[in-house]
Amino acid sequence: MDLQLPPTLRQLRVACSQCNLMELCLPVGLSEEDVARIEALIGNRRKLKRHQALYEVRSPFQALYAIRAGSFKTTIVLEDGREQVTGFQMTGELLGLDGISTGQHVVSAIALEDSEVCVIEYTRLEALAREIQGLQAQFHKVLSREIVREQSVMMLLGTMRAEERLAAFLLNLAQRFAARGFSGTEFRLRMTREEIGSYLGLKLETVSRTLSHFQEEGLIEVQHKNIRLRDRERLRGLIQAPLSH
């Protein structure tokens, strides 16, 4: 129980309760001394305004970023100058993993709203992982989950119809919100419909038309950027059987 935890660990649990870094420390059975070292590692925070870049393509890789509040999109710029959205990240998720292999970022990370991140200097994280038993294994679990997520997106774009893509996207968002203690049926889209289309490989008109069709069918309720999932089971069913027109 939290009441029995040492003060340092109790504070860290509160600070990181919505953070992906919880998986890097709390389950490992750390001593107070190790917890204090990790607290020092993630103590630096950075605030960003809406549309501000956390880092840009080809900028030097120096740190990972745990989203403490807010949300982001990651993007690349295509040869014709168009922006391609490669992902959306929310509170409790990590940014910056794209830069580990090459030493520079291969995407840009842009705040979708006023946001705050915890800055984790990567060289210090690596050094600490060598010293704290179990920390490296937990970090590898985070990396593995990101690989699985990327594979899921590739399958989404390669095999699904427009209705299936959008249904899967909404259900995925709902699941991620619910996992962080928020409502899994009502949420606000921080990204634009154009950005959703870029991510899903759909035109803006297709996204708008499909959302309207979902609302007409009683699957969702849309009010500007606010979404309410009215029939999650039927939405799931769309991924196997397209909605009739």
Rank of each mutant, 00 (worst) to 15 (best):
T206A: 15
T74V: 14
R232C: 06
L112A: 15
R176L: 07
L128M: 11
A53Q: 06
V142E: 00
A111H: 09
G92R: 13
A40D: 03
A167Q: 12
S71W: 13
H51M: 09
E93G: 14
S198G: 11
T123D: 05
F72P: 13
L173N: 06
S59P: 03
M155V: 13
N226A: 12
A109V: 12
E79W: 05
I220K: 06
L26K: 03
V85P: 14
E217H: 13
T185N: 07
L211D: 10
C16G: 07
V222F: 07
S144K: 10
H245R: 10
F88I: 15
I132D: 01
A109Y: 11
A179C: 11
C25Q: 01
I196V: 15
A109H: 11
K49A: 11
T185M: 02
Q89A: 15
L54R: 06
L219W: 03
C25L: 02
E164H: 09
G29I: 00
F187G: 09
Q136G: 08
Q215T: 14
N172Q: 11
R230I: 15
M191K: 06
G29S: 02
Q240L: 14
A168V: 06
V222E: 11
I76W: 08
E195Q: 15
R149F: 02
R68C: 11
E79F: 04
L26N: 01
R37I: 01
K73F: 14
L48H: 03
Q151C: 11
M1V: 04
V142L: 10
L9T: 05
L26M: 05
N226E: 14
G218F: 04
T123W: 01
M154G: 13
L156H: 12
F72G: 14
L200M: 09
V119Q: 04
E163S: 14
L219Y: 07
E56G: 12
I67L: 14
N172Y: 04
A127Y: 06
Y122W: 04
E56H: 04
S212H: 11
A129G: 08
Q138S: 13
A15K: 08
Q240N: 11
H140F: 13
R149G: 02
V153H: 14
